[in-house]
Design a protein around this nucleic acid. Structure first.
Lengths: 221, 221, 221, 221
DNA sequence: AATGAATGAGGCTTCATTCAT
DNA sequence: CATGAATGAAGCCTCATTCAT
């Protein structure tokens, strides 16, 4: 347990320096694996294919990652960490208090930030979404490390705005689910489903925020 | 092409009589495959495992489905057809006109109906979502048969309500994406992600519809 | 446990009909494996080599034996059973009483019989001797099934002859160890170590029995 | 050939100074290899495992021993040499003449001495017994260097005692085989097969010598 | 002398598919 | 129609050995 937590924290702290301490070949292995896992899925990807694309011998993969699944986890774990990163900054609440006067400012900031993150890590996000259901180890990471970290903090924010009567009364989780659905609906469509379409991110973000805040009923209705 | 289209139409027409013309063994094969594909993913499932769970010999699978991929497609294709079914009923527009005075009535009806459908076909929906990205054949079906059939029709409905000033002005696709995100967010959470939680479907549907129509801003704000 | 015992008994009962119920290919696999295991040792033998010598596809081996170790155990287990067979015949004691008036008659009979058996199964005996130290499963079989079955019975015989003052007083186990050493020394030399030398089995058996009974001191000394 | 012979002689001459001229790492490699070879067998042992247990890098093993088989031979060769050592002392015959009035004195001395040696070198003896059948190089060493050296000398001793009518007339080799079987039967049981049992070596040696000399027939029979 | 990353051949095993029964 | 033994390609992984540092 302690070890796992350490590793987890380590990967969090290593947020800035990507590919830290990785050998040249290791980086090429990861890059190749990400590319092919995203394209064909983990189970349908062979280690020999990864080796070939990475330009290394197949045995080299197993010097760095004990098993193929280890390789998968080494790819997904860091982006899970980065997924929660903005929410676990030490002075997250302070930042919030000072920065976001209204809930929609918060929404806008989060959506912008996470859209940027997903676009930059689209292939790994795709891998993560596809493989979490099939790998208990990844589920555990998500259930224990990602979800509570984010949910707890955001629920508190929602409640604060509900107390100020800026948001409707409703179980915070339901409220969040709907707001997140809207944002995720755009982020995933734009980065994973139809990445080749032309998108006006700023306009869409504004639209999403407005929709979340005011719904589809026209003002003069 | 003609053949495929025929098959597609056939599966559409076969909507009512499930498992029509299927031998007993064939049904057991499909049932076993659905169960294991959903649990472990298509690529990680072996035909021998399916045969074992279905209680048939390995060879029997290949008597009915030429390849393992054929089996997958035979599973996913009919639910794709049923996914669009309510939108391609011959007198869809008439039904709409007569039944739904307001957009939110339409939303409610669709959400109730599709939630019911997804809950009943959860494993196959899960398979579909996971495998579409990796199988061009399934992508084609979705892109050519499912999406346009539904989108065209629903866009027209949205436009009608926009003309009546019941819905805000906005590109119908964006409007739809957001509304669908909210509904899908609930439907998938409830049926695939956390199916074991207790859910009050009616309440959640009302909440979702209200959210879509009026957003999160309180009335007295 | 019950299963294992059943299997064990089954292999005992199957003593007469060798290769019972085995397919043609299965027999060829076993024959090839015995030959190569004996020649190069289990660990240094590859399954592809076995397949080649057996004239089957490598996959065929694994249809019949789940693992390479299973194959080894399937080879060694039956000869372990046959090793004890003469000692666990239902009316072993009766046979003894009626047949062998003197201990040396018993020795002669056993040595003749087991020499014959080892000569006929030399390669598997060699495999067994080499692999028992490295495979706990085989050790267990020997310790639980072979050794006690034989030792208990033979100790009783020794004691009977000691009671009649036909054998010196001495812990039966020590007495047995020495007598067995002499017999095994010949049997193994003759069948495994120098099988190509010319051996006069009858003369050597007589010599061994005389040695065991009277030692090396000349009568007139 | 010359080289090999030199090496052989060298290892013989090096009898007294164990691990002579070996670097610290070399000693640790040999120790680790002996331990693991004895435990799992040569073929089932990996060089990486040896390196790890020895606390050296994998490459270091190959700096000292060109191949894994070289390592095996470097381990087995010296104990083969020591196995014959007592029989090739320069004044072996003189020693014999002066020391052992009776054959049983000789037996006792040899058995005591070799038991001691085997107990002290049990793991290597085990390796030797297991690997000789699979490595022509080791067979050659045994057949050419060990066996004749010992056999020739001991046969002469036996003949001397036969001439004195202290031993029965019989081909010296057969006589030796039986005597050696009894001694080896104890030595191997005590040191390799059941080393954890309690053994009274002196009593067992006496018993073995008495058995060899007088057999199992009671004096008063 | 020592290291350990890199190699690629080869090991065991699984798998989708075929075919004689 | 159904079976299941047989196949051999391919998958994941290990290993002895090499070589630049």
């Amino acid at each position: 347990m302690a070890d796992e937590m350490d590793e987890w924290l380590a990967s969090l702290l290593r947020l800035s320096d990507e590919d830290d301490k990785m050998t040249d070949k290791q980086i090429k292995i990861i890059q190749a694996a990400v590319e092919i896992f995203a394209e064909k899925g983990y189970a349908a990807t062979s280690t020999s294919e990864i080796a070939q694309k990475a330009g290394v011998a197949e045995g080299t993969i197993f010097r760095h990652y004990r098993t193929k699944k280890d390789l998968l986890i080494s790819i997904v774990t860091p982006v899970m960490a980065k997924l929660v990163a903005p929410f676990v900054l030490r002075d997250f609440n302070k930042v919030l208090d000072s920065h976001y006067e209204h809930f929609e400012d918060f929404l806008r900031a989060v959506m912008r930030n996470r859209l940027d993150f997903v676009v930059k890590n689209a292939p790994i996000i795709k891998i993560m979404l596809h493989e979490i259901p099939f790998h208990p180890e990844l589920q555990r990471q998500f259930r224990e490390k990602v979800f509570p970290q984010v949910a707890d903090r955001v629920v508190r924010i929602v409640q604060r705005f509900q107390d100020r009567n800026e948001l409707v009364e409703m179980p915070p989780f339901a409220l969040l689910r709907m707001a997140v659905s809207v944002m995720a609906g755009y982020i995933l469509t734009r980065s994973l489903i139809l990445p080749d379409d032309d998108w006006d991110d700023e306009a869409e973000i504004e639209r999403a925020v407005a929709f979340i805040m005011h719904g589809l009923t026209p003002a003069n209705h």
